[in-house]
Nucleic acid binder design. Structure first.
Lengths: 344, 344
DNA sequence: GGCCATAGGGTATACGTATACGCATATTAT
DNA sequence: ATAATATGCGTATACGTATACCCTATGGCC
């Protein structure tokens, strides 16, 4: 209780107590091999007794390495905050864990795409590298990414691995996942398969999923019908609208592959309102396996991404980049979770 | 493209270009009043042209202020990672936003309660203060909190405002919310109301909610039956088990107030399996308003906490504490969202 | 005209660590 | 035995900023 304020101990204090010089303390604690085992042990003991911790600021200033990563998450500038991509949280969990494991701190910041995030973190020596997550204006995104590359900033981003590839990208095997989904729908006898989700190059991940779907269909000698594709962003409302539009067109369809679970959930609402039975009249598959997917009725068949692996891979790739080690681009496998919405 | 690597500009570079000394640059950029308007404008212009940003490490080292907050989130050591409290994400959003607004960075870290998190952040000068979020072994928690207080560490925590109050606590009006829930159940004619959630002082928030429920019941001259209370942690499985135990007891009940939505969802599963009709046989209310709450069937009546307000308040309170400004403890109002599970 | 207050900004230095370099002593090679 | 390493550590200094202190010029006031 009545403990003295005890000014934070410095490496000088330890040096004094150990009868050595301050640099020796630094060397000992950082694991330099040019300090004897006995001296090191003694220094470590004293450090522990004093509850000494290296001053992060001084250390970073001198070494020019912060041992901190920054995670920038881009949110759509919508009023509805719950639209945050639901699997983000799991990824955040594995990213923080991986960072902790490697001795790195994690700075986090939610950003709007139009802000000047691309200058703030590297120049001010807050972090050694940046992880980019989320969506937004894709063209603006690419512009700023180019700027990062120019400045020599180290970064990784989550996204479509098969895109033009500015910088280093880590992502799921969206094409393969789309293919799995398509093959499953074909296997249960569906031929007129609709796709809900932006198929343009403004949303490379959605585009990849559509590509996979088409590939699976063609493999079964079914030609995808462009009239059965509707643009949608990842939200219930957008999915609802897209399905409405599809229904209004009068074009018959017996299955939907939605680019995200939120889109799928919105679409299910529209289908139910139209009096269609799921999955008898229309089978439906989502993407992400958000918690709600197992609560819809019928429960939603969907694609589960490897979020733990994603966090680990993002951090590993970024650290490799920071250390100028070579890093091969990797795609994470995704798995189809079959539930009632495709159970015939 | 072929831009020179251009070493990061320092305040000396600016000083040279502006024809002043380095300290003047520092003063100008930090808004000191002892620098003329003309000089300041000139310095700011040059700084902008050079894309200058203050080196965070040097600044923090010298001023002993990091302008960074640390967010420590305690997760239950369960294998299931999705158990992370669902409203955490919204709170995270508002916390980061509030930090950005105040010019603070946010460090985030997921912790197990048993780790030595209580020494790592303050001593190493990573952050000016700590926000504590989440659950875990409550007794261990209190011990470590006392340690923080002893060391003079600035922190705020999210939790029960009415508890013993080690340090500064910000939280919802859990008692009031429980009272609302109870009053609503009474209003629809229910008298035998069960409570699922730990009612001991190991989980003060849940305890508060139970207290509120009891208060509302007594107000209506209904004596709460302790036999209708079951301990549960915030998970579907736990809720399922608790409801099962309740059913097995044979004690009749016509309503359930669950301490969280996850508990409620698990309980609904158990009730459905028992062939009970919701809400005719048993009305049910949850807590948190997670996205899934509107997808259950029947949709779940629940309590919505003010998560945006929570983030703002946590940050504000912590900053006040850091600046040694007085800070009054505040409770955030919570709102009952009425859905089908209590619609008779 | 002498005095003081004030504005504006320079000088010197501290924050705590990490690293280049040098210098002994101990070890091995020849 | 002597030169060539290697080992273990001290000395000096740099990282980039913020602040205490000091100095000059100007203006107002009596």
């Amino acid at each position: 209780m009545g403990r003295q304020p005890s000014a934070k101990p410095t490496s000088f204090d330890i040096a004094y107590l150990a009868g050595v010089s301050q640099p020796t303390v630094s060397r000992a604690l950082r694991g330099s091999k040019s300090v004897s085992a006995a001296t090191r042990a003694n220094i470590e003991r004293i450090a522990r007794e004093l509850n000494y911790t290296v001053d992060k600021n001084a250390s970073s200033l001198r070494s020019q390495r912060t041992h901190t990563l920054a995670l920038l998450f881009f949110e759509d500038p919508t009023p509805d905050e719950s639209m945050i991509n639901p699997f983000f949280l799991s990824m955040l969990g594995s990213i923080t864990r991986e960072c902790a494991l490697r001795g790195y701190d994690l700075l986090i910041s939610f950003q709007q795409m139009h802000n000047d995030w691309h200058v703030a973190y590297q120049d001010s020596h807050r972090s050694d590298g940046i992880i980019l997550l989320g969506y937004g204006d894709y063209q603006l995104y690419l512009t700023k990414l180019e700027h990062l590359v120019e400045m020599g900033t180290k970064f990784v981003r989550w996204g479509s691995v098969s895109d033009d590839g500015i910088g280093l990208t880590v992502g799921s095997d969206n094409v393969g996942a789309g293919e799995q989904a398509g093959a499953h729908l074909i296997a249960i006898g569906r031929r007129r398969i609709a796709f809900l989700g932006d198929a343009s190059d403004h949303a490379p991940e959605f585009q990849d999923r559509y590509t996979g779907l088409c590939r699976a269909m063609r493999q079964a000698d079914v030609e995808p019908d462009p009239a059965l594709q509707r643009d949608a962003v990842s939200s219930e409302d957008s999915g609802y609208a897209a399905a409405k539009s599809l229904l209004a067109s009068g074009k018959p369809f017996d299955a939907i592959f939605a680019a995200s679970d939120l889109i799928a959930i919105g679409a299910m609402r529209a289908l139910a309102e139209a009096g269609l039975r799921l999955p008898q009249d229309v089978a439906i598959i989502g993407f992400d396996d958000i918690p709600s997917a197992s609560l819809t009725s019928p429960t939603l068949t969907t694609v589960m991404q490897d979020m733990k692996g994603a966090g680990t891979l993002l951090v590993d790739a970024l650290l490799a980049r920071i250390d100028d080690r070579p890093v091969e681009r990797t795609m994470l496998p995704a798995r189809l979770i079959k539930r009632q919405s495709t159970a015939v």
